[in-house]
Amino acid sequence: MVEVLAERFNYAVIIILMMVGLYAVIATGNLVKRLVGLSIFQTSVFLLYISMSKVFGGAPPIFDYKEMAYDKLDPNAIYSNPLPHVLILTAIVVGVATLSVGLALVVRIREAYGSIEDDTLAEADYSLELEKGV
């Protein structure tokens, strides 16, 4: 058991983070906290990609300029897989954009309702519905 966990330590961390994020999204009624949970959830996926690109003993995939210029690159050198890093760079940008749109919406919700708690919002909408007559 301990061995299995130690071997897959990175995945254990990722799963815990993922569940923490998802739980925060579901459990809290506060819209900002919900966005925080969403960000944690997304970040755990970034870690999943980054950790899978790790190659044991691998160096960062950056060629030394001098070695490359004189054609002295070591053909047996081991590098980490650069592709997931690049993908996650894109995913981070997407995450930031989502977060900023979400926060902008929270600001507008607070202007319109005067609250960012889910139950207060539901109550306000419900009483509006009653006023209009169901």
Partner: peptide, 11 residues
Amino acid sequence: RALTSSFNYLV
């Protein structure tokens, strides 16, 4: 209510 609906959709 468009705001809260949009927020739910976002999440």
